[in-house]
């Protein structure tokens, strides 16, 4: 059975990754399973300088999902390279660094500082300080500029994680690919909000957060399907994957790989169970190559 997938020149032993921000730097989940089982570990979003994150409350449970406004708390790239990356390297898996900035120059500096990983994943859902704090990933021109700037300074496979908070995600997908993205991750969380009706206060200190979990899966499937028809690079599908069947649905919609996010919070071993579920499906359907499923939805 062939489970290998490729992102540019990088081969992953299987299509299952962890969604950034749901797996820390791998240490917590490594207490529960061997990270070498995964196709890749995508670490918590990194920035040049450490970030403290938002004040609590940071999470709120919603039907079949959750809101979060962690605020990109992270230890910074220098500490990651020194304290976390060497430890991650003991595992036979690919290490993908998710990173962000609030200016183009910060993205460029971050990408340069992360040369020790196997691939880069750009979080473009963060706001641009020099453009009225509008998210980079919601404007095709802005997205093109930031992706193009990072492309110039790195030879690593470059994945752009798209924001779903746009009218037509295919426009942004094309913009990222034209600017040099080797692959696209989709989707990031949907901006969302909840209110305590007793106190009239928002449930999150940041007021607005990001919705994740099975509640957003049909939206993510739709976007993967649309983007798969619009561009010709590998897609990493994510959004509410709880088991192998969910993952297969993403593959059929056009994803070449999948990332497990919120499910890691419910079961630390969820990502491995997703992989097992994909294998079970392939056995049951007598499919020997994962690539035979990708984009296989019949319409």
């Amino acid at each position: 059975m062939n489970l290998k997938i490729k992102i540019k020149n990088l081969t992953l032993k299987n299509p299952v990754m962890t969604a950034s921000g749901t797996f820390g730097y791998g240490e917590e989940n490594a207490e529960f399973f061997d990270l070498s089982l995964l196709g890749a570990v995508v670490v918590k979003g990194l920035s040049i300088k450490p970030s403290m994150g938002n004040p609590p409350p940071r999470i709120w449970e919603t039907p079949c999902g959750m809101l979060n406004s962690i605020g990109l708390q992270n230890i910074g790239i220098e500490a990651f390279n020194r304290d976390k990356l060497p430890w991650l390297r003991q595992f036979d898996t690919r290490i993908i660094a998710n990173f962000y900035g609030n200016e183009i120059s910060e993205f460029v500096e971050a990408a340069r500082a992360l040369e020790g990983v196997d691939a880069l994943e750009m979080n473009v859902s963060c706001p641009n300080k020099q453009a009225g704090w509008i998210a980079f990933g919601t404007d095709p021109l802005m997205l093109s500029k930031v992706v193009g700037a990072v492309r110039k300074v790195t030879e690593l496979p470059l994945i752009v994680k798209l924001s779903p908070n746009v009218t037509d995600i295919t426009v942004l997908a094309k913009s990222a690919v034209d600017a040099g993205a080797d692959a696209l991750s989709l989707i990031n969380t949907l901006t969302a909000m909840a209110i305590d009706i007793e106190t009239r206060r928002p449930r999150l200190s940041n007021i607005i957060g990001g919705l994740s979990g099975p509640a957003i899966k049909p939206i993510a499937i739709r976007m993967v399907y649309q983007v798969h028809k619009a561009v010709n690079v590998p897609l990493i599908g994510m959004g509410g994957i709880m088991n192998g069947n969910d993952a297969v649905e993403f593959l059929l919609a056009g994803a070449g790989g999948v990332a497990v996010g919120t499910a890691n919070f419910i079961d630390p071993v969820a990502s491995v169970k997703v992989l097992d579920g994909i294998i079970d499906y392939m056995r049951r359907k007598n499919i020997s190559d994962i690539n035979d499923i990708i984009g296989g939805v019949m319409v």
């Binding site: 749901t22 940071r58 962690i70």
Partner: peptide, 28 residues
């Protein structure tokens, strides 16, 4: 006591502020 998503230190949802002006995970 804090609301938690994962309980193992992965989500950073349950933090409390410390006197050294950092956030510590209540779960971990």
């Amino acid at each position: 006591e804090e609301r938690m998503a994962c309980g193992i230190g992965g989500c950073l949802g349950c933090v409390t502020k410390t006197n050294s002006n950092t956030y510590s995970r209540v779960c971990k």
